[in-house]
Amino acid sequence: MTSRGWFRNGALALGLVFLYVPILSMMVFSFNHSRLVTVWDAANSPTLKWYGELFASEQLLGAAWLSVRIAAMAATGAVVLGTLAGLVLARFGAFRGRALLSGLATAPLVMPEVITGLSLLLLFVALEQLTGWPEGRGVLTITIAHVTFALAYVTVVVQSRLAGFDDSLEEAALDLGARPATVFLRITLPLILPAVASGWLLAFTLSWDDVVISQFVAGPGASTLPMVVFSKVRLGVSPDVNALATLVVLAVATGVLGATAWSRRRERRLAREQRAARGGGR
């Protein structure tokens, strides 16, 4: 190995340590007895005390359940709209207004959250003044806001997936007598399914994780888990949040690893199939 090899692998190792030490430290201290979080109380640790408190906290549990519901709804909405937008951008060719759609669909990716949050709140206020809808702010407005920024991610994922597929597959289906709707259901959708699935997971995570936009568009009645956690940790370290974090990290890691394994297997098969089906031509 050359000296450069050592350098870059050293940097990689350092970076990975940097990425994982905070998470691991948080997990370790979730089993610490002391309220002083970062001072290890060897006499009484490890303990599940904070996990007990966590599960006794109706506020945290309620907020977590609300967040799951919102994230599931937002992810579903974002996947439907994002898949349509991705399909339009990848397959419908040039049409009037395409540039605007492309801009609108990808802008949320780089938009600072405070701006998205502020603008959506002002929209909801104005809408309510004009039409009486949405009545107050809460789950509905949070969900709409999350759909809006998450759909950008789904659009990008689906669009780039479609761009990787030869569109003669769809033409072949049309040529064999399938109507456009059939083509979508029987050819396009099965092929982009991994992208749609990972888009859903991504949208779920983004929604589940969002503090800033939620803070703008949530009413007094609806506090998502990140909002509750944020207000707690603004005041300093809180041991039950460590416990919560540990559970979240474990759940997410399991979910993501499982989903990745599934989609990678599927992906590999599809890639092989497609490479082969293309027959090396063109």
Binding site: P190, A277, R278
Partner: peptide, 14 residues
């Protein structure tokens, strides 16, 4: 009443 054989064959991979 026409069918086409594509250059890439366009066989449905799935």
């Amino acid at each position: 009443p026409v069918n086409m054989m594509f250059q890439s064959y366009a066989l449905f991979p799935h």
